[in-house]
Amino acid sequence: MLQYLIILLDDTSYSYCHYSDIKTERRLIGLDTLKRGILFAMKENLNIQFVYPDYELPEAYREVIDSIDHTDIKPSAVSDGADVVVVNGCRSLEQMTVDIGVSYVLRTDKSDLFANYRLIMEVLTQATRVNVVLTDVETFTDDDFAGYKRVLGELSENVEKLYVGGKTPQLNILTDRMMLDRMNNCGAGDNNLTLAPNGKFYVCPAFYMENETNDVGDLDSGLHVKNKQLYKLDHAPLCRICDAWQCKRCVWLNRKTTLEVNTPGHEQCVAAHLERNASRELLSNIRKCATFLPEREEIKEITYLDPFEIKEQW
């Protein structure tokens, strides 16, 4: 069921996810389009998330945005009042002032993460939540997975110390799986859609950035998501039997790697399972020191990193 509407305020709105910032020319959403988008969301009972560019919006826009309860996703350069702040690369964390109550999205690639992951630990001592987005996960090789496993292990040791010490910061790739009891994926195309500056709807911002003809409707004619069942978990044969519940299950990456929105590529699955297994270890270690999430069951030990490997057993 649709619950969220993401509104890209400009073609240069910062990416907060896997896709790259392809569009470099500013195209601010028309004020009328913005108002109609908000009206649409109100009538459909949707929560709005605004995605900002790195420049200040005109006053008139700010007034319209403030006319509705919403979430602001902003780049660090204009992060005043943001609910979610996006930073690119671990090094950007160094100069950043951390605000309590704000979630941070760290977009990073393997070379950056493997070299600079310790910087995440420093932020975690102050921040409530950090979301790590691996922007090149589809290129991971076996060596990269080994590197990622090592990074997760080291981050986990530090997170464990924080938790045992009474602090409970959230780091999506380690702590989300501990807290979940079912799939909690991105939900693009299912529980959220995106309105782009051109007044058209898209499955998510990545589909818009990739090609404007990927639209699934517009403000004039409404939504026309074809084969919308394929965005739902029960129509994803690999994912519906999977328990890497923290996985983003990025439908854009799915389509990019396997040509189907409902089928993840090997790399997305393995990365998610390395995170799942690291969470399992973390949960177990924290519980050795204190009572923690007593209502949650242990995360089971499994022998595979890609559910595709066990498809014959389904």
Partner: peptide, 26 residues
């Protein structure tokens, strides 16, 4: 065309996953 690879680069196994996980009811 649904191209899964070529004679130079080999087969991209990711492009086969939808077929190998496809079932009747889905």
């Amino acid at each position: 065309a649904w191209i899964i690879g070529n004679i130079h680069d080999g087969i991209d196994q990711n492009k086969l996953r939808p077929f190998l996980t496809l079932d009747r009811c889905t």
